Simulated scan of single mutants.
Amino acid sequence: MTTADEYLRLAERYRKALETMKDPLARQCLERMEGSYRTLADSERALRTSGYIVDALGKLGDIDKGT
């Protein structure tokens, strides 16, 4: 599974490529790719955080049951 940091590295790569690109269509594609990878990084972080929360809530539920 790809991590948020790996997605951010890919986004940065597209941002750097964008700096030297002059063709408007290519720039638009690079901007979209950068944005997509940043969105993936945000999503990965949110999913990981929600997993931690679900685990913690599950443990609280186990405590309530006396296990």
Score class of each variant (00 low, 15 high):
Arg15Cys: 07
Ile63Ala: 07
Thr67Gln: 08
Glu12Asn: 13
Gly51Cys: 10
Ala46Cys: 12
Ala17Phe: 02
Ile53Arg: 05
Arg45Gln: 13
Leu47Tyr: 01
Arg9Asn: 10
Leu60Phe: 04
Glu31Ser: 05
Gly35Trp: 12
Leu8Glu: 08
Arg9Trp: 03
Gly51Arg: 01
Glu19Met: 11
Lys16Ser: 05
Thr67Ala: 12
Glu34Gln: 10
Arg45Lys: 15
Asp5Pro: 02
Tyr7His: 08
Asp55Ala: 14
Tyr52Arg: 05
Ile63Val: 15
Gly61Thr: 09
Leu18Pro: 03
Met1Asn: 03
Glu6Asp: 13
Gly61Cys: 09
Leu30Trp: 01
Asp55Cys: 11
Val54Ala: 05
Thr49Ala: 14
Tyr7Val: 10
Leu18Gly: 06
Thr67Ser: 05
Ala4Val: 10
Gly66Asn: 07
Glu12Phe: 12
Arg13Tyr: 04
Thr20Glu: 15
Lys65Gly: 08
Gly51His: 01
Met21Ile: 08
Ala17Trp: 05
Thr39Pro: 08
Lys65Thr: 02
Lys16Val: 04
Gly61Trp: 03
Tyr7Thr: 08
Arg9Tyr: 06
Leu40Trp: 08
Thr67Pro: 01
Ser50Lys: 11
Asp62Glu: 14
Arg15Asp: 06
Arg15Thr: 12
Arg32Gln: 15
Gly66Leu: 09
Leu18Asn: 07
Asp62Lys: 11
Glu19Ala: 05
Met33Cys: 05
Arg15Pro: 06
Leu57His: 02
Leu8Ile: 04
Ala46Met: 14
Met21Gln: 07
Ala46Pro: 09
Lys22Gln: 13
Leu25Gly: 00
Leu25His: 03
Gln28Lys: 14
Asp62Arg: 09
Glu12Ile: 14
Met1Glu: 00
Arg9Ile: 03
Asp5Met: 03
Asp55Asn: 14
Ile53Asp: 11
Arg38Leu: 15
Thr49Ile: 00
Asp62Asn: 09
Arg27Phe: 00
Lys59Gln: 07
Leu10His: 06
Ser36Gln: 13
Arg45Gly: 02
Leu10Tyr: 15
Tyr7Gln: 00
Arg38Thr: 14
Glu44Leu: 11
Gln28Cys: 08
